[in-house]
Design a protein around this nucleic acid. Structure first.
Lengths: 245, 245
DNA sequence: CGACCCATTGATCGGTCTCAAACATTGTGG
DNA sequence: CCACAATGTTTGAGACCGATCAATGGGTCG
């Protein structure tokens, strides 16, 4: 991990990323909070850090706070009675972790790598919602955004072919990486998670993920640079797949 | 279809069903709107009726309104480039149909049977949100509720076994039916949708749905009464499956 | 009452899971 | 800094389950 924060002083306050309900300017991901709202949230937030593998929250636990990811990746998951684990989402900078129901967390959340996140106490947060309708609206937008993302994940899972699921997965992650990238050459993508985590996200075995990735390499669509970095070669076809997904 | 409305005069206004964010009284499904809010929505709403198979909205279409289901069942779905259809959700009384992004519907929506729904123009609705923070909060609760439902659907899809997916599906639908049921004998469930629709919802073929249902019958967990009504025999084990899913 | 749509049943095929083993990577302590 | 251990990844062989194709049977709606 680098010592200097890559996002500068702007990262020092909570941030919500998503697509606004009303058609935004670009249509892409935008910040859902203005400076004043970010300050409001900062006033009730404390920054927490988690090493890889640390639990942010556990399924069934009584809620106290939700987290706003600043840096690193968090996975939310649930365990089935046969001991398998299904990963519901990977959460990145600007995402919210801690969906709850009847005062209890629904899912467990674990740090995939080194994570920094703002801790937002629920009591204080709900008070803010009552006071500021625009803030409430921002969280509604974020909830709808997460709903769309979950639906998209569902579409991924409905594909029978392991290769197609992986291809959609890569397409989903690409926009995140492209900002840090100069748009010139082939886009490069860093997968911070392990193979088995991709597998649990896509409803596959770790072996099928490995085989699928290498199948895509053989087809000339992908190139692997080490275990956690890949280069997308066949961008055109990927865009087409994205349009239909 | 019966001529007399089963819910009486109370049905004459929009209704949002879901679990409140703060632990509600019962913990079960409750109405998220009070009488005043329902009237506010009624003032901008018009009641529309759709025969089976009618399209309420189409993927990619410019938005004008969202729908609040009063009676009947609506399915929301998306088509993949290979012509397959994935059903994202079945929407019942008190649900909202019409998730949108950048001014366009994300999914298509079709009436599964005879449907009545309130049409809520988006422009007027967004104006209401700005004016009434409590109403906004209710829609936030509803969005979180739908998010939970979608996650639950995801868990269903992560099961490899067709029988287990069906079992979870039945468990999901059971609470809806149990209200109309006296709680005495074995719960009965009406499936208004066709086999192929269940298949598209569960990521199976219609044949697999048929085989799975009859496998459950052979195991003594289920009994079929015609094509669209079933009786759940082994309630205990189902509750256990529900607790873990 | 007939035509169409839907549901069921059977046989075959393909893809992924599983188990098992070799291999690579990462992190650790000497 | 190196060697080692632990963890994670790749590859292979076989079994299983659901998709698909095809045909029959049952419901429903005109």
């Amino acid at each position: 991990m680098k010592d200097h924060h890559p996002h500068g002083v702007e990262a020092r306050r909570p941030l919500l990323r998503g697509v606004s309900l009303r058609g935004g300017a670009s249509g892409g991901n935008i910040a859902l909070l203005n400076a004043a709202q970010r300050q409001e949230l900062a006033d009730i937030a404390t920054l927490a850090r988690f090493p890889r593998g640390a639990l942010l929250q556990q399924e069934g636990e009584a809620i106290s706070a939700i987290f706003n990811v600043v840096e690193g990746v968090v996975k939310t998951y649930r365990l089935t009675e046969d001991g398998k684990r299904h990963i519901l989402a990977f959460m990145f900078r600007g995402d919210l972790v801690g969906l709850y129901e009847n005062g209890r967390y629904l899912n467990s959340a674990e740090a995939v790598n080194e994570v920094a996140a703002y801790r937002l106490p629920v009591a204080a947060l709900e008070k803010l919602w009552e006071r500021d309708p625009a803030l409430n609206m921002a969280f509604l937008s974020k909830a709808c955004h997460d709903l769309r993302a979950t639906q998209r994940h569902e579409i991924m899972l409905s594909r029978r072919d392991a290769r197609q699921r992986l291809w959609m997965f890569i397409d989903m992650l690409l926009p995140q990486a492209e900002e840090s990238n100069g748009g010139g050459e082939n886009p490069r993508l860093t997968l911070p998670m392990r193979r088995v985590e991709i597998a649990d996200y896509l409803g596959l075995s770790a072996e099928a993920v490995s085989r699928g990735l290498h199948a895509l390499v053989r087809e000339g669509k992908l190139r692997l640079h080490g275990l956690h970095q890949l280069e997308v070669l066949d961008r055109g076809e990927l865009a087409a797949a994205a349009a239909s997904g």
